[in-house]
Every structure is written in C-alpha cells, then in structure tokens.
C-alpha cells in the first residue's frame, strides 16, 4: 500500500470553544497508480485530509503510513516525503515568484539538493510533461495566461519527481478548453509515468470522466468510497451533502422514468449517447480517430469503454 491512513482524526483548536473536528477516525488505503477523485463541500474536511498526506498537518490521533513507514515516526524524513507526495494547492499560480519560468520550476529540485544542471534537466522534463511551450521558458511567469501559469505551477511540483501528485481544484477559474487541457495532461502523467493522482474537484463531471475511484468527504468522515458509478448512484445522499451527480446522470434517471431501457449509471456523454442509441435500437457511431476527437472528450482508458 502506497499511502495508508489508520484511524486519523484532526481537531482544530482542541479544548476551546472553537473546537472543530475536521477529520474523524478516517481510514483510507491508496494503492500505487490509482486515479482518485476527492469531492466534498467547502468545509467538509477535504483540504485538511490532503494536507495530512504529505505531513503538512499532524493528526491529532491515528497514524499515516507512506510505503509502510509511519510518517510521524521518530527520525522520519518529512522533507523527503514532501518531494514524494507532491501537493499542488488551489490557485498555485499565486505561488509563482521567479523572474522566469525555468528558474521557477527549478526551485523545487534545487531545494532537494540537485545541482543547477540536474535541476534544469528535471525542470525541462516537467515543463514538457505539462505541455508548456518551449519558447516561453525564459518569459516572466507573470506575463502568461491563467492556464499557462497553472501549468508552470504544476511543473514546479512535478520537477521534484513525486510518486503521488495531489491537486486541489487544478481547474478552478479556467475556461472550458483550458480545463480540458489541464485534465488531459494530468491523465497523460498518470498513464505515462504511473503517478498516483489525487484530484480534489468541485466538478462532478470532471471526476466522473477521469477518476477510477471517488472518495466523498463529509463532516470529516468518508461516507462513500468507490468507483464514480457506485458513488453517483447515491446521488440523493450526495445532494444532502451539498454535492450532486453529473448532469448526465440526472438525464439518465429521467429517461429511465419515462420508460427508456437505459443504464442509469452512465456518467459521461459518450457512454450516455451509446446507451440511448442502444435503447432506441439505433446503430452506434464508429469510433472517431484520436486526432479528430474534440479537446478533452477522449475516452477514459480502461473503463466505461464505448466498445
């Protein structure tokens, strides 16, 4: 098991009037190579949870293991852990500070003790992996568009060569195409480098499309943990938690009620389309060429296939 939380609780201001239990007896096991989506309303405890994963916060109770080792054990190297478990905060572009892109991305590996040359190799590789165009390597990060800035910020974490990449709402404030590009890039990292991805998102559509496991955080507990299909089948309960299902799921339920023989667990547009065509006895469209796919509408690999 790559990451494991055993009976973790976290209490803000313990013993005071403002005491808040942000996490309550959370148990979680994350295997290497998973693509996990975390959803929960504002204040549900999801940010507290992810900050426990790389020892930015210390649990009030319970233990956290990375590769079998207790990360709060005596002599555990937490600085090294933070390069293994990379965390990209919300609006990470606010943390850019260097005069040019490449130096900014080199900051992490330099801090890891790599030489300038080694750090540069890492930085270039990271920038390539997030799809950042080479002609802007020496530009000021502040002259870039919102989407490009965010790529640089993600590259800054990637350059440390993490095994786990946690992203807190990496697409907030991006336009639809920018959102799709960033998510496709994250999917690419997951597939090419086998990095474990933990994606915190307020977009049910995005987690349905990309994650193979969905963890719901509510009141500091984890009420649901399963495939997106399993989790979204509890859409009434999710609504009571300030969440929802993807719009498509509601559509499938409405069709079912009207007597259509459709699979109500369909949670992406492609899946829903094929399902409806089948229910109407119509032929399915031939799979499109990869280069013809509209941006971001590529199929989730390995699951929910179109046949």
């Amino acid at each position: 098991m790559q990451l494991e939380l055993k009976d973790v609780s976290f209490i803000y201001n313990p013993g005071m009037v403002y005491e808040v239990k942000a996490l309550e007896h959370v148990n979680l096991a994350i295997e290497k190579g998973q693509f996990i989506g975390i959803i929960g309303h504002t204040g549900s405890g999801k940010s507290t949870l992810i900050q426990h994963l790389n020892a930015l916060m210390k649990p009030t109770e319970g233990q956290i293991f990375y590769e079998g080792e207790d990360i709060w054990g005596e002599k555990y190297d937490q600085k090294a852990l933070r390069t293994q478990v990379g965390l990209v905060f919300q609006y990470p572009e606010h943390q850019l500070f260097e005069t040019d892109v490449i130096t900014d991305v080199m900051f992490g590996p330099r801090n890891q003790g790599l030489s300038k040359d080694e750090a540069k190799v890492r930085a270039v590789r990271a920038l390539v992996q997030v799809g950042f165009p080479e002609q802007y390597y020496n530009s000021s990060p502040f002259e870039l568009s919102g989407g490009q800035k965010r790529r640089v910020a993600i590259a800054g974490v990637l350059a440390m060569d993490p095994q786990v990449l946690i992203l807190d709402e990496p697409t907030a404030g991006l336009d639809p195409a920018g959102r799709d590009e960033i998510l496709e890039q994250i999917r690419f990292l997951h597939e090419e480098r086998g990095i474990t991805i933990i994606l915190v998102s307020h977009s049910m559509e995005d987690v349905a499309r990309y994650a193979d496991r969905l963890i719901v955080v509510n009141d500091g507990k984890i009420p649901f943990d399963g495939t997106p299909k399993e989790v979204f089948s509890h859409y009434r309960e999710l609504e009571a938690m300030g969440l929802a299902a993807p719009q498509i799921t509601y559509c499938m339920h409405a069709l079912k009620e009207r007597g259509f023989d459709v699979d109500v667990t369909a949670d992406t547009v492609e899946e829903a389309r094929d399902n409806i065509l089948k229910a109407l006895g119509k032929p399915l469209p031939a799979p499109e060429n990869a280069d013809k796919k509209p941006a971001g509408k590529a199929k989730k690999s390995g699951r929910a296939g179109r046949r």
Partner: peptide, 15 residues
C-alpha cells in the same frame, strides 16, 4: 452544457 452536448452527439449519430 453536458445535456446539450449529449443531444448534439445523438443528433450526429442520426437522431
């Protein structure tokens, strides 16, 4: 919107 996209996909498929 996702529903509009679904309708558009269905239309392309011949509905």
């Amino acid at each position: 919107p996702q529903v509009t996209e679904l309708a558009w996909e269905l239309k392309k498929a011949g509905l």
